[in-house]
Design a protein around this nucleic acid. Sequence first.
DNA 1: AAGAATGTTACATG
DNA 2: ACATGTAACATTCT
Length: 273
Amino acid sequence: MPELPEVETVVRGLLQSNIVGKTITEVHIRFPKLILDPKAFVKDVVGSTISACTRRAKYILLTFNTGKTLLIHLRMTGKLLIVKKNDELSAHEHAQFTLDDGRQIRFHDVRKFGRFYLTSDANEFLADLGLEMLDEDFSFVEFCKRIGGAKRSLKTVLLDQKVIAGLGNIYADEVLFQARLLPQRKACTLSKHELKALCDSIQQVLRSAIERGGSSLGSGLGNFLNSYGQAGKNQNQFSVYQRTNLPCLLCQSPIQRVVMGQRSTHFCPHCQK
DNA sequence: AAGAATGTTACATG
DNA sequence: ACATGTAACATTCT
């Protein structure tokens, strides 16, 4: 689940929990593939103080006073949970960071796709990622430059993290509905007006999803939860995602589902052009 | 019980 | 170099 709004929700939760300024007294990695060199990682991080917690694309960045940055990618089912350090360990908790105030940050991941990366140069690590759509210095001109010429379909382009950072399968579909554009449209066929609609839709969809605390699908263990273990509310706002054959909210036509680039893709064949 | 699931990457093919 | 397609990762849910 975790796309930009979910990752942003996690980061805001961590900030609210006042983890910045806390020192890490103990680290346990119980799933070795989580990070390149678990032993070196533990050695490196123990004793560090968290100096910042931010987001870039779908990465959570924990910056330490040592100058190193821990980048966490949740992939499909990863979660970061804040608990008391004596809380019983549950299944799928693959890493834990004990803080000097008696709490722990735990990494929970059913499918084990999530990864940690420790770097002394976060900028270099993140250099190839695409536009940050909600940044203060976001520029529509830059957006057009990146999207406008692409010969690929809009769906593929929106999912390409090197073009635009942070959209995933859910929000790509929602954005295209909001912009009234078919996922199959080639990006290079968009008029200036349509590019503007696309740009505005991305920002609106992301902003409102963040306001609602992200999207949580279903009730399983893989479901998105924020750092307090709470579900989001945005799943109730979907216009097309997982609404196959249900009536379009605007025109009542049945929502269609096709597969593009191995991902299920939902759209209204009447409203989207 | 087969198929799909929010993400990414590596590899192959055109 | 670009575009598309497939498999793989690991597990759970429908």
